[in-house]
Design a protein around this nucleic acid. Structure first.
Lengths: 120, 120
DNA sequence: CCACTATTCAACCAATCGGTTGACAATGCC
DNA sequence: GGCATTGTCAACCGATTGGTTGAATAGTGG
């Protein structure tokens, strides 16, 4: 119960290399060696990155002889989108309401004191 | 040029406490002390969390006497949603195409060998 | 001016992270 | 069987992280 799923997903995607790996997996499955090729880090480092993505549920692995092909699990991305969208919408609604209040207040002031400015 | 915006946003939200702070700010601005109250960590720790969120562009701060009220900047959330949705859609499309191919292949096999099952 | 409140800065600490090297397991091919 | 290929495990290292305590800054209100 150490850390929830959402935390693992967010922190998995906090690393640019891992985001890049996800981007590449979106256009097709790939083996660890294929994924490691473009970077100038060891294949072990990439293996670790993939493990992080796997623990977050973002990729699953198959078995093809001694190869362990990686596949993107897009479902988990919904989890993040849902979290994000919820608060974005909430904040936007709040701003909308605030704007409405301000507008009404402005109208009121105009009505109450049609020609008077606030004293300095 | 150390780290890009997206990395900062993702890693800011990788922490449960920070996600919680964002959630609370979505329903209204708050000061550091108010935000710190529910947690059993020092106010300094929360101040650091807010700084992380601020550096990621997720919150902005105002000035009201000696208070520095925090406000959620929801725009940045769009950045993440866009990144996520792009690859989710890409992966989904790929699966859809793959399904279509498999279906066509299945039809073909059925036509080629109407009554024959594959040998054990 | 003084005291109080709100917030941050600085130094420190343990844990985690991204990377390395080196050894090891598993599988296919000759 | 022997060997090359693919991938992981283990131990280590320096940097970063999330937390602490203690001191400093800044603005309010008597």
């Amino acid at each position: 119960m150490a850390d929830d799923r959402l935390s693992r997903v967010f922190s998995a995607l906090a690393d640019p290399t891992r985001r890049d790996i996800v981007a590449r997996l979106a256009s097709g499955d790939a083996t660890v060696n294929e994924l490691a090729e473009p970077y100038d880090v060891t294949v072990q480092a990439v293996s670790k990155h993939i493990k992080v993505l796997e623990d977050a549920g973002l990729v699953s692995r198959g078995r093809d002889a001694q190869r362990r092909p990686c596949r993107l699990e897009a479902d988990v991305l919904d989890l993040m989108t849902k979290w994000i969208e919820r608060y974005r919408r909430e904040a936007e609604d709040r701003f909308r309401r605030l704007d409405a209040v301000l507008e009404r207040t402005a109208e009121q002031s105009a009505a109450d004191a049609p020609a008077k400015e606030a004293a300095s």
